[in-house]
Design a binder for these strands. Structure first.
Length: 151
DNA sequence: GCCAACGTTGGC
DNA sequence: GCCAACGTTGGC
């Protein structure tokens, strides 16, 4: 049984259509311990991922992706040129991980945060209650409702 | 650009 | 291990 997640991204930096053109990417730059722990301990190959656009004109669920492979060290933590560089991390004891995801769908009809907040059926989502967490668990029923609303 | 909420750091 | 100070996130 796959699990369902929501990954946040700022579309000015990396959007669902950037993922579409790449096909596959390592979801780099997660620098929060709880989010990391989820990537490392809970996110599995085959899990479904809603891609959410934050810090933009219309914050919204924008697309669908799938996890491939297991968590591994995020190379950007070792790159001094990267905004995600972490001088306190070391190659023999990496602090941050990423997972690879593949593009599945860019929604023509996105689901704005505003609409999610208005709907009581979504009131227990982390997007509503724990909005700052960048790797969010999505209840199965919410996942299916969101995908349906976007098609 | 503001600011509330939340996460991290580091002195003690 | 507490907690004040500070930094970041992200909606508005």
């Amino acid at each position: 049984m796959p699990q369902y997640w929501l990954f946040k991204t700022e579309p000015d930096t990396y959007s669902i259509d950037d993922l579409k053109s790449e096909g596959r990417c390592g979801w780099e730059g997660i620098r929060n311990y709880q989010a990391r722990n989820r990537l490392r301990d809970e996110v599995r190959a085959g899990d479904q991922v809603l891609i959410y656009h934050s810090s933009c004109a219309v914050p919204a669920v924008a697309g669908l992706a799938k996890v491939v492979g297991e968590a591994k060290a995020d190379p950007s933590q070792f790159d001094p040129q990267s905004p995600y560089f972490d001088p306190k991390s070391s190659a023999d004891n990496p602090r941050w991980v990423l997972v690879d995801i593949v593009w599945q769908e860019s929604f023509t009809r996105t689901l704005p945060l505003k609409r999610i907040k208005e709907d009581p059926d979504y009131s227990h989502m982390e997007l509503v209650n724990r909005s700052r967490l960048s790797i969010q668990h999505v209840p199965q029923d919410c996942f299916h409702r969101i995908v349906k609303a976007c098609r």
